[in-house]
């Protein structure tokens, strides 16, 4: 064996490999060529074994040629593999093509009821203002619904609540609460001031259901009892709430009014876009008799209360034309929100 013939053989192998790798159509063929050109029985391996038989003067040069050939072959095999792997991946992609706009077995999220959404938003605003949320029963005694609130049995205001009574105890002793104010009484009976609460919940009136009335509807009331609370604090709190809930450019105003449980009393209005006023709810300074009824000393503590309808907010926000949708539970309505 001469160094010249060895080199010539290597050149032939390289040429052969180059042609056949380029012609390989799948990875298996490349693996076979890999074994043939680089395996134990390959020409390059054989050439290496023959190196010792060469003239020592030639060994270095031929050895370098063998290594160069091996490096070239390895690179060509790797290139062939890459080429075919990319093709196979591309074929897989093509085979697995999907139309993602075909929606079978759609997963839908349920909707929270509009009342819940409105209530949650209100609670969140008041929580940020330092209030906690109080709750209480929907069936109440005359004490919590009326008497403790400074509405004695003969008071004309009792009639104006259009109360729904329950057949328990003495006649007109147990009723569906006509406002959430009983929660204020229960809180004041059970909590030492200072008190900062809002009380959302369902209330009842003998209103026949129509497009604008329901016999069961939802209110939220606020109560603050602390030292030195003023009517100015009441208006400031309502203003802060209105700005947070309705937006910073909505104005508020208080108008003198009358409720047996507050003195002074007021209605509060918010401004509409057209500059007119919308009556939102009632409010006032907690009447000393109410504080007294709950065991709170009116000389030490003062406070205010306010309340308004929750359903109405939902009606206003979505411009509902029929409030009965809120209790019909029609999925065509529920799923819009």
């Amino acid at each position: 064996m001469s160094s010249a013939s060895l080199t010539a053989d290597l050149d032939a192998v390289l040429a052969d490999a180059n042609v056949r790798l380029a012609a390989a159509v799948d990875l298996d063929a490349v693996s076979a060529l890999d074994a043939e050109f680089l395996g134990k029985k390959s020409a390059v391996t054989a050439a290496k074994k023959q190196l010792g038989q060469l003239d020592p003067a030639d060994r270095k040069e031929v050895g370098q040629a063998i290594n160069a050939a091996r490096t070239t072959l390895e690179a060509e095999v790797a290139a062939a593999r890459d080429r075919l792997a990319a093709g196979a991946r591309q074929a897989q992609y093509e085979a697995e093509r999907l139309d993602l706009s075909e929606r079978l077995n759609e997963v839908r999220r349920g909707s929270l009821h509009l009342n819940t959404q409105a209530r949650d938003r209100l609670e969140d605003v008041f929580v940020c203002m330092g209030f906690t949320v109080a709750e209480g029963p929907e069936v109440e005694t005359a004490w919590y619904n009326f008497e403790a609130l400074n509405i004695p049995e003969w008071h004309p205001a009792r009639g104006s609540f259009d109360t729904i009574f329950v057949n328990l105890g003495e006649p007109e002793e147990v009723m569906l609460r006509s406002h959430t104010s009983p929660v204020q009484i229960r809180t004041m009976e059970n909590t030492e001031p200072p008190i900062y609460i809002v009380a959302p919940g369902r209330t009842f009136r003998t209103d026949t259901a129509d497009a604008t009335h329901l016999p069961a509807f939802n209110q939220i009331e606020g109560l603050v009892i602390d030292r030195g609370i003023t009517l100015g604090d009441l208006h400031g709190t309502i203003e802060a709430f209105v700005h947070a809930f309705f937006g910073g450019d909505v104005k508020t105003r208080l108008r003198p009014s009358y409720f047996p449980f507050t003195e002074p009393s007021a209605e509060f209005d918010i401004s509409r876009d057209d500059g007119s006023w919308l009556e939102l709810g009632g409010c006032g300074m907690v009447h000393p008799n109410v504080l007294h009824n709950c065991g709170i000393d009116p000389e030490q503590w003062q406070g205010f209360a306010f309340g308004f309808g929750i359903d109405r907010l939902a009606v206003m926000r979505y411009e509902l034309d029929d409030i009965r949708e809120l209790v019909n539970n029609d999925v065509r309505f529920l799923r819009q929100f």
Partner: peptide
């Protein structure tokens, strides 16, 4: 208190400065 309401009414509720009381406790849901 009733007389306070009369004073407030004739003074004008709108003329009373608005302030926001701050309780000592943080608010929150239970």
């Amino acid at each position: 208190t009733d007389i306070a309401e009369e004073v407030g009414r004739m003074f004008g509720y709108e003329n009373i400065e608005r302030t926001v009381p701050k309780g000592e406790d943080a608010g929150g849901l239970s």
